[in-house]
Every structure is written in structure tokens, then in C-alpha cells.
Design a protein around this nucleic acid. Structure first.
Lengths: 235, 235
DNA sequence: GCAAAAGTGTTAGTCATACACCCATGT
DNA sequence: ACATGGGTGTATGACTAACACTTTTGC
């Protein structure tokens, strides 16, 4: 095997760039949504696309993804997970750019679409009403959808999409949307309550023209304790 | 928001490189092993490390991972899956290099350690007897271990590590090694046979000083049919 | 004939599923 | 008083877990 020297390596290889792209999920009107931005710069100016950016040479990869998300939403400490890296040779017109994709879960109630650097150019889209997308963004979204679904089934990350207090019906509809599956109400309630990490906050919804629903919250401490004792979430 | 022009983007960002690294699992002597190579080039010359390489600017990312694996083993069509991308700023001494990690499963019987470009410098290591490793390779191996374990529980990829024909005891020991969990022999056999994708090839092992075991093979066609009918593997 | 691993069934308990009616509120 | 979604219990079948002895071969 030929052993190349450092100088040759630098000339031959160090001319690529890499980016991060975020698939931001929200839950609204009983439906899963994702956040797209209207591109104001080349390439693909004028198209709706995933929020993303090139990573600076001195910037940590995961922190770059967090930066993009914070610029977009004004929110910190958002649930976020790396999905996959996409590396087709011709995926970017400017040169060789591979992109590392992440998905993030945000509570739509907390998200002020105007408090962000990218303000007016952000919009929620239902997954079945996506516009035409640039790059390989559609493929990325499909990957994100699958990964989120798998993860949501075995870890209680779905609650990241709900407000602090929520009703059992909201949880059920949320999981039905994520998992694309219907549940029997009685069985679902028994199951989720018997897991032991939901706390009845002894309040009720108000102003609805029907019996008011009890409000619950997710208790992360209880969940961690359960986990330590061998429990594992599974829907 | 400032809109940078193309020229500025090229100067500011296109000076990174990226690599692929493979965590190659094998199963031998009832134990999970991984393949490391002895580095013959800088940086970290003289250390045992994951087989990997820089990706050429005109080379597809996944194909680069396959190239590395084929150079190493002489084998094609190996099960392989992307794990995660590691992007700490200072992870490579030559400059900004992010690495995309993969894991691969090979049948040790097929692997001729001499038929490869990297011949004498490759060696199997047990997971609990790893040498000191360069870069973030230990972190990568731990990621690979976790991901493989999770995947092996819900898809029958474990069979990629076994010879074409194998005994039920071999499967059991394999899954005990992968999942780090003991199984009851009678229950395990019932379970795995009732899944319906194993075929008794009507041969027996020979030359052992005890009752010879029946040999089975994994039937991918049967598995696919079962999948289509809604079956899902789960151990 | 002995050592060594292969092979085999039953039972009890737990868990998942299916299913229909009354309740509390707003208008 | 009616419309709307919230809230609740039981019975049956399916699956899981626990457990010990006999068989076949090589030496």
C-alpha cells in the first residue's frame, strides 16, 4: 500500500464542506407538522427548504445544529437527535457538501414564529402537503419520519411535542399521529397511566362545550426512576 | 440576515475533509469480535485503529465505506449500516475532518485475513480486550455496539455473522453474545423455530464427541414473505 | 460405560384485546 | 334538553416463563 504524505492529503482531500439540516416536528390541530423556511439565498433561492446551514471550520457539528435551531426558533434546550448523513457526490451545486441531518421536537405553543432571525420566512407544513423541495430534502424528511416513529415507540419523547399540561385524549391523538395507528381509548389510558410517569395535576380544561378533561404532566424524575428499575417504555 | 455570495462561501467553508470508519463485527469462539488494523501511516502511526479512510471529493459516501471494507476483507455484498457522524472540531490533527461511522457484519469463515490489501496488519479483538485507540474510535465502537444490539433485537441481521449452515445452539450463543442476556434453551428454540424462517437442511454436524446437532439455514425469502404478512422479528 | 452437548412438553400466570354505556359541561 | 367529547370495567384468549430428564455420539 502506498503511504501518502501529509501535504498530498491536504491538497487532495481538504476541499469539501459540510452542513447540518434540521427536520423540526411540531404537533398542532391533531396533526404532525414540520417547519420549512423560504430560501433567501442561492442555491435554490425562492424554494421552501429544511432549515440548515454550512458548518464553520471551527464549529462543533452538534453545536452547529443547535445554532441553526436556536436562530430559527429562539428556543434553547430543545430535544434533538442526529438521524443520518447524506453524501451523494452531486447533491450540492457549489461543490462537495455532505449534510448531517437532525430532527428536533418542539412545543408549538412555545414557538413564537416572529422571535427568530428568520422570522417571516418560516412556516409549518403538514407532512402530506409538502411543497417541492431542493437538494435531497425530501429523502431527509422521510428518514426523519421513520427514525422518529421508531424512537417514539420505545422512548417517551413524544411528550416533547405537547404543552406542559395535557389531557389523555391529547396524548392519544399525538401517538396516533406519530405511529399512524389507532388505539382503543380504554386500553390506551390504562396502559399509559399504568406506566407510572404521568401525574394528575388536579386541574381541568375549561371553556369546552363538553365535560372538562383532567390535566396531566410528564414527570421525568419518575420516568428515570422507573428506567433504573428495569422498566422500558413501549407502545 | 446577511446573504453571503458564492465566492465568500467557497473561501470560508470548503476546506474540510471527511472520512468513513468501519466497525466490523465477527463472531468466533462464542464471542463478538471486531476487526482493527495496525496503522502504517500518520497520524497515529503504529496504533491499532478502526479501518477507515478519507473520502475522495468525487466519491459517494456509502461507496467509500464499501471500498474500505472490500479492500480490507476482499468481500463484497456485506451487510453494512451507517451509525452516526462524529464532528468534534479537534478530532483530527491534520485539520477539520468529520467522520461518518458504519458497522458491518461478516462471516468469519469467509474472511481470509490474507486476501486483502491490508493483509498482515488486520487482527480480531474481543470487545473487552481492546487496545488503546486513536481519534474518537473508542466512542465510535461503543456507539456501534449499542446500535447493533438494538437493531439485532428487532431484525434478524444476526444471521449475517453465522456460517451458511448452523445449529440452534450456535444461534442461541450468538444472540446471547449480541444481547448480553441468557436464554432458556427450550423456550429459545420454540421461539426461533416458530418464527418460521429457519429451514432444517437435514444434515448434522460431524466429529463432535457428543450427539450431533441438526443444521439449519436462514431463508430470506420466507422472512420477506412473513414480513409482508405483518410479522416482525423480536427477541 | 461415561462424558458432553442435543433435544424435547407441560403448566401456571400474566398480559393484551375486545367491547358499550354513563358523565359533566356549554349552549 | 341536547350535543359533545370525557371517562370507566370485565371477561376471554394469547403469549411468556419456569422447569428436568432422555438421547446420541466419540472416546
Amino acid at each position: 500500500m502506498v503511504i501518502p504524505d501529509k501535504q498530498k492529503i491536504l491538497t487532495d482531500f481538504f476541499h469539501a464542506a459540510f452542513s447540518v439540516d434540521n427536520v423540526v416536528f411540531g404537533f398542532d390541530e391533531g396533526d404532525l407538522k414540520i417547519l420549512l423556511i423560504y430560501r433567501g439565498a442561492e442555491p435554490y433561492i425562492g424554494m421552501w427548504a429544511l432549515p440548515g446551514d454550512l458548518v464553520r471550520l471551527d464549529e462543533d457539528l452538534n453545536l452547529a445544529a443547535e445554532r441553526v435551531l436556536e436562530d430559527l426558533t429562539g428556543l434553547k434546550n430543545i430535544f434533538m437527535e442526529q438521524i443520518h448523513t447524506f453524501g451523494r457526490v452531486d447533491r450540492h451545486p457549489f461543490g462537495r457538501v455532505i449534510t448531517v441531518a437532525y430532527y428536533a421536537l418542539i412545543k408549538t405553543e412555545n414557538y413564537d414564529i416572529n422571535a427568530a432571525s428568520w422570522a417571516e420566512e418560516a412556516k409549518w407544513f403538514s407532512l402530506n402537503e409538502l411543497p417541492e423541495l431542493p437538494f435531497d430534502h425530501l429523502e431527509i424528511i422521510n428518514f426523519a419520519r421513520t427514525k422518529f416513529k421508531e424512537k417514539a415507540r420505545k422512548q417517551p419523547i413524544g411528550f416533547e411535542l405537547l404543552p406542559k399540561y395535557f389531557t389523555l385524549t391529547q396524548i392519544q391523538h399525538l401517538f396516533e399521529a406519530i405511529l399512524e395507528e389507532k388505539f382503543d381509548t380504554r386500553n390506551f389510558r390504562k396502559r399509559i397511566l399504568s406506566m407510572g410517569f404521568l401525574v394528575d395535576v388536579k386541574k381541568t380544561e375549561k371553556g369546552k362545550a363538553h365535560r372538562p378533561a383532567a390535566l396531566f404532566k410528564f414527570d421525568p424524575k419518575k420516568y428515570q426512576k422507573l428506567q433504573k428499575d428495569g422498566f422500558s417504555f413501549d407502545l
